[in-house]
Amino acid sequence: MTANDAAKRALAANPGLPVDAEGPVFREPWQAQAFAMTLALHEKGLFAWSEWAAMLGETIKAAQAAGDPDTGETYYHHWLATLERMTAKKAVASPADLASHRDAWERAAHRTPHGQPIELKSGDFTG
């Protein structure tokens, strides 16, 4: 499966990734989703792994300077922050875009009864 080859290259470029003997491991579903988006964008040629690794390194360094305990617990938070920075840099998703979509999802969650799948509707963007 191609996801495995892609993941292997991602692992080679990101030695900090939490892994076991068989590959990446994720503590929560969102971490796997963030990882999947990164693989997909890399496949599209949006960035090279060297560029990704440099930006992730900057993110982690800045977080450590700000007091991040660097226990590995926060690794995927840095990963997600890097993904947001990368998509902004490549003009894929501006911070304003991200903010409006984030707010829309929050409205969608609020109007969705607990236990139902949360789906985004156009009305969620207007509040």
């Binding site: 964008l41 998703a93 991200l98 979509h101």
Partner: peptide
Amino acid sequence: LSETELRVRALQTIL
């Protein structure tokens, strides 16, 4: 949804 989940979903939708 947690703040992190909101950010992940926002990005997914845009992509």
